[in-house]
Design a protein around this nucleic acid. Structure first.
Lengths: 218, 218
DNA sequence: ATATTTTTTTAGACTAAACTAAAAATTACA
DNA sequence: TGTAATTTTTAGTTTAGTCTAAAAAAATAT
């Protein structure tokens, strides 16, 4: 059984590997708000357990084993976030801190049952994909709505950082994450998009289209 | 903020105080499966924080402050157990270990929302009362069905220790914890009870009546 | 190419929460 | 009541995970 701290490091490693192509001791320390010397200690331990590839001064990367654990934590985190928003009525911006705690609860059965209870969701309330029990994560082709041409389709998965208010707007328009969207027409003169969501026609300004994230299948 | 370990001790103290009138270092060690010397260390710490009254060699008791914390942990434990059984479909006998972990999650808001989501239950799946947010616990008049006379009423709150199979039986008969029960008639010659639950007449053997726990209001 | 700066690691210390072994206090009993 | 048994505490050790300060390695710049 891995400690909470080990799990936090593996998760951090995963996120950093996604975002950058090499992961340094300092970047981990920054991410986790710890001192580099503490990170070095933990990296040795994780290497010992074969969760990471690590050579002094040479940076680090997750092994297959380590990545699977990271993904299982992320799965739990995102399922719990979904629970908090869908069932307990939290706002999507309030759930992260609580899910950081819940993700460390140890019980396979619990997660299996929670997943079923939630209806086996594929995306969490922020639009991030939820890995399945084998750690497979839908590799999204994340795009902005503005990148689509007329007649193309996608699934709404989130909004860009710092555009919280857009989510509120979408909510008011009864548009939810996970909804399918299809581009009907793009107006030449101001870049306005006419789209169809849930069989309803909606009009989005160019600004909105630059901040709305979609998953596409091309 | 109190540590998980501190919370475990306070909860143990509460349960031991309920069951026995004086709580010794050894009894705590037994209950928590730890060495007495470890317990002494923690008692000093808890006394320092004014959670317990403690004098060397003289046993210990919870202060008001300590008892409130214990009750808040028990509240969380029982709400989570209710969630696991009512919503996730766990058996009442599978949930304790998971709830031991969940009870330490820190978020007032979470518990408030969970409580509402569950419909503000008053009893957990084992029939134990759930303290309210101020630590008030319904003092039940716990009785066995066999102690009731004809026409008396109660609420089914659980079964006696070691009679797991009875719960299964009740389940099959569509009798749930929290259901109201009324004694219609008691047969002289074998002590069989005819009772009414959910407007249905049911027949319980004397053995069943000796193991079925009720809350009554006398 | 060497000196300076930055990054990373090492060495040693700290804290919380457990432990073992031994000492001290209390309780039990003959 | 005095000795033996039991309970509790003390003293010192361990482990996990953090820290600071200093040393070592790598990267950068003149």
């Amino acid at each position: 059984m891995n400690s909470q701290s080990e799990e936090d490091y593996l998760k951090a490693l995963y996120h950093l590997e996604m975002e950058f192509d090499s992961v340094s001791t300092n970047s981990i320390a920054d991410y986790l708000d710890m001192k580099p010397s503490s990170v070095t200690d933990m990296l040795k331990k994780l290497a010992e357990k074969k969760f990471i590839n690590y050579q002094k001064y040479k940076g680090t990367s997750l092994t297959k084993k380590g990545k699977l654990i990271a993904l299982s934590i992320i799965r739990k985190h995102r399922l719990w976030e979904t629970f908090l928003v869908d069932k307990l009525g939290f706002g999507w911006d309030q759930v992260h801190i609580i899910a950081e705690q819940l993700e460390h609860i140890k019980s396979e059965e619990l997660i299996k049952n929670l997943d079923n209870f939630l209806g086996n969701p594929k995306y969490d309330p922020h639009g991030d994909p939820i890995p399945n029990k084998d750690g497979e994560i839908e590799k999204m082709n994340q795009k902005l709505l503005v990148e689509l041409k007329a007649s193309q389709k996608g699934i709404i998965t989130g909004v860009k950082k710092g555009t919280a208010s857009l989510l509120n707007y979408l909510d008011k328009e009864k548009v939810k994450l996970g909804d399918s969207i299809k581009v009907i027409e793009i107006l030449e003169f101001d870049g306005t998009y006419i789209v169809e969501i849930n069989k309803r026609k909606l009009t989005f300004s160019e600004k909105i289209c630059q901040n709305l994230l979609l998953e596409t299948n091309d």
